[in-house]
Amino acid sequence: MTKRVLVTCSAGFLGSHLCERLLKEGHGVICLDNFGSGQRRNIEAFEDHPSFTVNDRDFRIPGSLSSVDRIYHLVSRVSPDDFTDFPVNIVLANTQQGTCRLLDHTRACDARIVFASTSEVYGNPEAHPQPETYTENVNIREIRGYYDESKRLGETLTGAYQRKYDVDARTIRIFNTYGPQMRHDDGRVVPPFITQALRDDDHTIYGDGEQTRSCYYVDDLIEGLVSLTHVNNPEYDVYNIGEEKSRQSKNWHTKYSMLRIRTLVSLMNHYLKMIQYGTDRILPVRLQDLIGDQKSSHVRG
């Protein structure tokens, strides 16, 4: 059934992929983005689509929003490099001025909302892996705390609206996603390695490199987001798109150590430099497809 869908931060890395998926499914999509961190060229391919509407505004500023059936709340900035420059914007977008406003709109429309949280709500965990009984370890005063703690409060607000107003909401915690249209200066796990490989720079690894990260391709994340939204009365309030088991697991991600990620990127870069490309692509995905041309400030597919 065709739905009217509102996507915040829809010109960003995840939002643009989600909008494309929703349009392919035949839904009407409203892009709500002030293009502070998102890039308009991420949505160029479907900006003229008859079922796609661009609303260029800061959703934290009071004003009317169109009635919708579904809301994907993907804000806020997620790059660690942005935590220093935009701490107040990040906190308010994830809490009072952002999440509360969209939850109120969800209630007014009798819609369904997905709040995009993060694995960072666990902070610097003292238990590995973390059971859901683990209450997290976040330093609210450090730079990452602005993002981590505001996402935790965003989860709390979502739960409060569910309990008090019976809002149809679900929360999804996102781990390390990578793919086309990701900023090469994003600052998360995969982009720096690929950027450094393309430049033939040394790779930067903090600590001993044995710390592990859940990494999965953007299409898998979008599949998880859309699938969860389709479910009526889900069993749980919060879903992690990730996996604590070995990389043999047939789940939505693969878990690697930092050293393993670095090695894979290096091997891919070395191998691709030896390939002579003809009319047909030999590999379905090139390294440059994941992180983009370094002459550009943004990742392109």
Rank of each mutant, 00 (worst) to 15 (best):
S249V: 07
G12D: 02
P80L: 10
L103S: 08
L22N: 04
I143Y: 12
G98Y: 08
E136Y: 10
D69N: 03
E142V: 01
N240E: 05
R281Q: 10
L283Q: 02
R101I: 00
D208Q: 02
Q130I: 10
Y277I: 14
C109T: 00
G159A: 05
M1C: 08
Q181W: 12
R262Q: 11
H298V: 15
D69F: 01
F59W: 12
E20G: 07
K3N: 09
V78Q: 13
R152D: 07
I241G: 02
G292H: 07
H298C: 12
V238T: 08
H270V: 09
D208G: 10
D104C: 01
C9F: 09
L153M: 12
L6I: 00
F193H: 01
G63I: 02
I174W: 04
A108K: 08
L18R: 00
P192F: 07
E136M: 13
H298T: 15
T204G: 03
S79N: 05
E136V: 11
T118R: 06
T263D: 10
V167A: 06
Y146A: 14
T158R: 05
S76N: 14
G38V: 00
R144A: 11
H128L: 15
D48A: 13
P50T: 07
L157F: 15
I291N: 05
D48F: 13
L23T: 04
D200R: 12
L267T: 11
R60A: 10
Y122F: 10
T53R: 09
I30P: 07
V7H: 03
